[in-house]
C-alpha cells in the first residue's frame, strides 16, 4: 500500500526530472553547434520574420490592453491612499520590468513554440528530418540553430515594442478616462523610469525567446507518430515553454532586484 503510494508519487517526479535532463542535454548540444559552420542565413532570416515580425500584432495588442488595464487598476488602488499621481510611473515600471517581458514571452510561447513544434514535428513524422540527414544536412544546424538564434535576438525587440505600446495604452487611458494632463503623464513616465528597468526586461526577453525556441524545437524533433504525436508535441512545447518562462522570470527577478 505505502510502496504503491510512493511509486505513484515517484513515477511522475522521475519523469519530470528525466524530461529536464533531456531538454538540458538538447540545449547543450544545440549550443555546441551555434558557432560552428555551416550557417544557414536564409533560414535565420526566415525565422526572424516568422518569430519577430509575425508576432508583432499579437504582442502589440496584448501590451496595449494590459497597459490600459494597469492604469485603471493602479488609479483605483492608488486612490485609496490619495496616490493617484503614481499611475504613470508604476505603469511604466510595471510594463518594462514585468508585464512587457512576461506577457510578451507568453504570447510568443503560444504563437511560436506551438508553430515550431508543429512544423518540425510534422517534418519528423513525414521523414523530412531523416531526408535532411541523408542529404548531408544536420537537422540541429539547419532547423534548430537559426530558430534559437532568431528567437533570442528578436524577442527582446518585441519586448521593447511591447513596453512602448503598453506605456502608450496607460497614457491613452490616463488622459481619456483618468483626467491626467498629457504632458505631466509623459514627464512622470520618463522621470521615474530608469535604464535598468528597461534593460532587465530586455534580458528577460532574450531568455524567454531562447526558452520558446528551445522547447518548440525539442518537442518537435521528439514528436511521436501521426497526428496525435504532433498534437502532443505542440501542447507539451507550449506548456513547457510557459512554465519555464514563469519560473525563469522569478529567478531573474530575484537575481536582478533582490538587493
Amino acid at each position: 500500500m505505502i510502496a504503491n503510494l510512493l511509486a505513484a508519487i515517484g513515477r511522475p517526479v522521475i519523469a519530470v526530472l528525466a524530461a529536464c535532463g533531456r531538454v538540458t542535454l538538447f540545449a547543450l548540444e544545440v549550443l555546441s553547434h551555434l558557432l560552428r559552420p555551416p550557417f544557414y542565413l536564409r533560414e535565420f532570416g526566415h525565422a526572424v520574420m516568422q518569430i519577430g515580425w509575425n508576432s508583432l500584432p499579437v504582442v502589440a495588442m496584448t501590451a496595449l490592453f494590459t497597459g490600459g488595464a494597469l492604469a485603471l487598476q493602479i488609479y483605483a488602488g492608488g486612490s485609496r491612499f490619495n496616490a493617484e499621481s503614481v499611475v504613470p510611473s508604476i505603469v511604466a515600471i510595471g510594463m518594462a520590468r514585468e508585464l512587457g517581458p512576461v506577457l510578451g514571452g507568453l504570447m510568443v510561447a503560444a504563437r511560436v513554440a506551438s508553430s515550431i513544434a508543429a512544423e518540425i514535428g510534422t517534418m519528423k513524422v513525414t521523414e523530412q528530418v531523416d531526408a535532411l540527414v541523408t542529404l548531408s544536412t544536420n537537422p540541429l544546424k539547419y532547423l534548430v540553430v537559426p530558430r534559437l538564434l532568431a528567437a533570442t535576438l528578436v524577442v527582446p525587440v518585441l519586448v521593447a515594442v511591447g513596453d512602448s505600446i503598453g506605456i502608450m495604452g496607460g497614457w491613452l487611458v490616463g488622459i481619456s478616462r483618468l483626467q491626467f494632463n498629457s504632458a505631466v503623464y509623459l514627464k512622470n513616465t520618463v522621470d521615474f523610469l530608469e535604464f535598468w528597468d528597461i534593460g532587465s526586461g530586455l534580458v528577460k526577453g532574450a531568455a524567454f525567446g531562447f526558452i520558446v525556441a528551445l522547447m518548440g524545437c525539442h518537442f518537435g524533433l521528439n514528436s511521436g507518430r501521426g497526428a496525435q504525436g504532433v498534437g502532443t508535441a505542440t501542447k507539451s512545447a507550449v506548456v513547457g515553454a510557459s512554465v519555464l518562462i514563469l519560473a525563469t522570470n522569478y529567478l531573474l527577478t530575484g537575481v536582478f532586484f533582490s538587493s
Binding site: 510534422t122 517534418m123 513525414t126 521523414e127 523530412q128 531523416d130 531526408a131 540527414v133 541523408t134 542529404l135 548531408s136
Partner: peptide, 19 residues
C-alpha cells in the same frame, strides 16, 4: 559521416519532400 552520406541517395516512402 558526411563523406559517406554524400555517396547515398534515398527515395522515402512518402517522398519526404520539404513542404
Amino acid at each position: 559521416r558526411d563523406a559517406l552520406l554524400a555517396r547515398f541517395g534515398m527515395l522515402f516512402q512518402g517522398g519526404a519532400l520539404f513542404d
